[in-house]
Design a protein around this nucleic acid. Structure first.
Lengths: 338, 338
DNA sequence: CTGTTAGCGCCTTCAG
DNA sequence: CTGAAGGCGCTAACAG
């Protein structure tokens, strides 16, 4: 609190030049600056340990070199990884990030959006909750730099980065069938809004089954809250024909399935084939190792950041579109019957 | 980009009052404001959809309601959890956070510290790399609001929040011995600087063994880079007396041990007792479930944030000190021989 | 109860 | 090549 911040003015007097000259120097406009002057400024800065005040600068230049991220729910490993990639890319390009976790609550999302905007962020990367379409629309109309991740909002044409969910499920189904499983169920968490990945994954499942001429048991398709999943699993096993394989729609779902298997003593792989969407860090060391359909989270995050920063810089390349990423199958023992 | 930002001035004219009146309103100083005026301002704000420019405000009031976090290495699950708790607490108190990952590189840490300071953050929460003591010292001298997490810097008296590492290891050793293990090894990752947890955990191990009159095999204490751990484990198993139990110093170390066990077909629990420091999400569903010594990450993060925000607000309570947190043993099957 | 005034720290023409 | 002047959007006395 004591720190009497030293400003550009101090530097100027110390160096014996005018304020604007120092400003020129700070902005690397030394085209016509005397080498002598320059040296003096340099040493003044060093002696005083001058740190320019970015807030003041931002007010003037009308950009903050900060971007805002609001994530629907940071508990998903997927979100964490993507965000990490976004941060990396932004930092590499000289931007800071402010991350907000909406906790799947649209009101929180709205609140964070407002504070981020008040803070004059230069752009926004959103994992939308789905509950604030009007705001998103308004921002889009103002062509405020923005990109969506993981979820799309149909009514809107905004650059959106997400997995090819249909394909992901198709790969999972194909893989399980090749490994001799016959009665495949899909479980995923049910969020209240129209969550893109969940919907597309269930669509994808229906298509995958139909394309292969396989029967669809409606009971085999479950979208329910995480906390109810255990109950759902029990019900499935009380059927006369329980499933012999599961696709977990995401990491949180996976955890419930694993917990269930361990509690009920089900042998994963042998009597219970398992493939999960999203890589988890312990997949390789689990016993048995878990088969996963990984999203290229790093690449997706990098891409989202890069798209956004181009917009921020005004380098508008192509018109906004949906960027789909290919799923990657990591076949391991949890989907091998023998 | 098109958005002609509307400012307090527009609101003032629209409402037919002066700028400062609007400012008063925004800052909730309506003590002496006419109900009439107030209403007019309210509707002007609504019609115009006015969002105050926080940057301008910050320049004036000299605070940004933003705090900076720089974490030595975000790859540790521990860091992620603590940061999440910090963010929660900060958001609850109306503060934003900017997170930077130093990647264990002191230069990066220094760079981030500087940009954070330039951005005029009101305070700093650091998981110090250990390579920038001078800067930390300088900030401490200026009594810049700051708190350390996970690591302490001996030379400095700054509020620091961390695990009671000696106790954590003592608990682990005690637990393994009670379960019939006799030759306990401890593995941890070796970062180049003097990383507090690593050092204290090894100290703690030595103390725990000595206090129980147990012999210490120097080969049983390994601090090495994650990538070399596999080699270290192989070496341990080539001894005539290999260990019968392991303490993993952190989550990354744990992963290496699990990978090793799975590759070499070692039965965790039976022939290889295992306790790890730090809870991991899959501990409960692993086969066998993993015994962990959890740090109260949520509480630690909350506390760190709360200490910091008190400083920021000038509510200086007690003098800075080290806040030690009690480890919590989650005894599960990985540390049961039978 | 409301308006006037003077900056916060920095940037940017525009003269010199 | 350098300095003077004006202003970014908002706040905070201080007068009225």
């Amino acid at each position: 609190m004591t720190n009497k911040k030293i400003t550009i003015r101090e530097v100027a007097t110390q160096a014996g030049v005018s304020i604007s000259t120092v400003s020129q120097y700070m902005n690397k406009r030394f085209d016509y600056m005397g080498t002598e002057t320059r040296k003096r400024i340099e040493s003044a800065i060093r002696e005083l340990d001058y740190q320019p005040n970015v807030v003041a600068r931002s007010l003037k230049v009308k950009n903050t070199r900060t971007i805002g991220i609001v994530v629907a729910n940071i508990l998903h490993n997927f979100s964490t990884e993507v965000i990490r990639a976004i941060e990396d890319e932004c930092h590499n390009q000289g931007f800071s990030t402010i991350i907000c976790n909406a906790d799947d609550e649209p009101e929180k999302e709205r609140k964070y959006l407002n504070t981020l905007l008040s803070k004059q962020v230069d752009g926004l990367i959103l994992f939308p909750t789905g509950g604030n379409i009007e705001i998103h629309q308004k921002l889009a109309d103002e062509s405020f730099p923005m990109v969506f991740i993981d979820r799309i909002i149909k009514e809107m044409t905004v650059d959106s980065v997400l997995l090819d969910n249909h394909r992901a499920i198709d790969v999972a189904v194909e893989h399980l069938i090749e490994n001799g499983y016959e009665r495949i169920a899909i479980l995923t968490s049910s969020l209240l809004q129209n969550v893109t990945p969940r919907i597309e994954r269930i669509e994808g499942f229906q298509m995958a089954m139909k394309n292969r001429g396989l029967p669809m048991h409606p009971e085999y398709v479950k979208g329910m809250e995480i906390k109810d999943l255990n109950r759902g699993l029990k019900r499935l096993y009380s059927l006369k024909q329980p499933p012999d394989a599961f696709i977990a729609g995401n990491d949180l779902t996976l955890m419930e399935i694993l917990k269930f298997a361990s509690e009920e003593g089900k042998q994963i792989g042998r009597e219970m084939g398992l493939v999960t969407i999203d890589e988890v860090d312990f997949a390789k060391v689990y016993a048995p190792p878990l088969s996963t359909i990984a999203q290229p989270t790093f690449e997706m995050g990098r891409q989202a950041a890069s798209l956004l920063l181009n917009k921020v810089r005004g380098d508008v390349a192509e018109p906004p579109r949906i960027h789909r990423y290919a799923p990657q199958l990591n076949a391991r023992a949890s989907s091998r019957k023998h």
